[in-house]
Design a binder for these strands. Structure first.
Lengths: 237, 237
DNA sequence: AAACTTTGTTTCATCCCTGTAACAAAAACG
DNA sequence: CGTTTTTGTTACAGGGATGAAACAAAGTTT
């Protein structure tokens, strides 16, 4: 999964940097804005995954901003408020906000809420758009790669007890069969956000995978000079 | 046709009045309650035509309330939830809820759903029992997780005296067997409306659960790097 | 209000995963 | 056939993830 981008609408410069910095360390791409005016167009133009909105802005009432953003956009909005006012909270939520947090707050909590909001919207996309057409088991030559159980079962239904790393690698390969995947590409698929410092890391994992695939190790074919390829065909050359 | 009576279980006073007023205008008799404690007995004593239950109550966990009401009562329950969580929805429905609506909602929609539920139950009275089969007891390896009694019984029919937190966690796991559930997900399933600030809280509860499961502790499998998984199978690797 | 229960947090030790290095084997190339 | 390049294998160490114990905070009961 790629990095999520978050728009912070906040007039307090200190909070801007503190929150922004923290979220960046948390792995998010952050864009910060200090005024109401820019906010609407920015939210409309760019495709953010979540918006963090501080209610007390200098040039306008934040609450209206919620519905204005909502006009053109369904991006989840988390409202940051200075006061713990239930009525205000309700109004915000009714205007279309997705969550409400009161200052002062702990960064961990904010982080958790953002994560929750993001996951929620992802669930939406998965359940409504895909409507349960998720591939949950990948079958080949009697083997079963179960994505719910995070496990690979051999033709005798015994678990091969893969590590998560091995699992993700096999998953990446099996989801793109008959296609040569570079080490670089495989690394990105299995190591979200990290950089590959050592090319051969993939090779080692491939080796470990093949060992656990036993006699069907040839399902993973080496493409010399390129990378690796998964083959579930009748025959492997 | 006589006026239908609706019980609103809602801690937020503003929502109480707003929703209550609207439904009264809509021609219903409305009774409002703000706390979990009253809810069960009130629901048992009085004969309502429908119950509107807000999941986030101050003094108790809303989800449990569903099954508690169901013990003595077949009144249709509409769950009002702050979050749009598919898993939660499923659990609610399995616990015996009849419908599920997410905040913020439009009063018109709520009204429509109430009407639908009332119509359905009227039809039911004519026809037969409920079509959906509720899960009330979960069995595995001689153990019995009784969702009505809120208790776990070991193979000797002795109570294991779980705390509510432990119970809910085991329940969440057992309702999704053979599926790796993340700590985040488990937290949301067991902690209504709260946000996880510390992942390892789940780990501790898992440990406590395993201790009470004694020799069958392996029913809860650790999925390294992912979370935990419940297995009621013959064998666990 | 005190005692108790329940649950979240911290800390530490352990275990397992995984990247790294080193070397062997195989393939490509002349 | 020898050299070079690429890949397979093994061993190892660092680090991350997990479990257990102890503690603290929050809630509950009396």
């Amino acid at each position: 999964m790629q990095k999520s981008t978050i728009l912070i609408i906040e007039d307090d410069e200190n909070l801007q940097t503190v929150v922004g910095q923290y979220l960046e360390d948390d792995g998010y791409k952050v864009i910060t804005i200090g005024s109401f005016a820019e906010a609407v167009e920015k939210a409309a133009i760019t495709d953010f995954h979540a918006i963090l909105l501080d209610l007390v802005l200098p040039d306008g009432e934040g609450i209206n901003l919620i519905s204005k953003i909502r006009i053109s956009n369904t991006t989840p909005i988390i409202v940051v408020s200075g006061k713990n006012d239930t009525m205000e909270k309700i109004i915000c939520l009714e205007m279309g906000a997705d969550d409400y947090i009161t200052k002062p707050f702990e960064m961990r909590e904010l982080s958790a809420r953002i994560k929750a909001v993001l996951r929620r919207t992802n669930d939406h996309q998965n359940s409504e758009e895909t409507s349960g057409e998720k591939v949950e088991k990948i079958l080949f030559k009697g083997w079963c790669l179960d994505r719910q159980q995070y496990e690979l079962f051999d033709p005798d239904q015994k678990a091969a007890s893969l590590t998560t790393g091995e699992f993700k690698l096999l998953e990446a390969l099996a989801l793109a069969p008959k296609r040569a995947l570079s080490r670089e590409h495989l690394f990105e698929l299995t190591h979200e956000g990290k950089y590959d410092v050592y090319d051969r890391a993939i090779d080692i994992q491939i080796a470990r995978l093949r060992k656990k695939l036993r006699k069907d190790a040839k399902l993973i074919k080496t493409v010399r000079g390129v990378g690796y390829m998964f083959i579930n065909d009748t025959e492997a050359a």
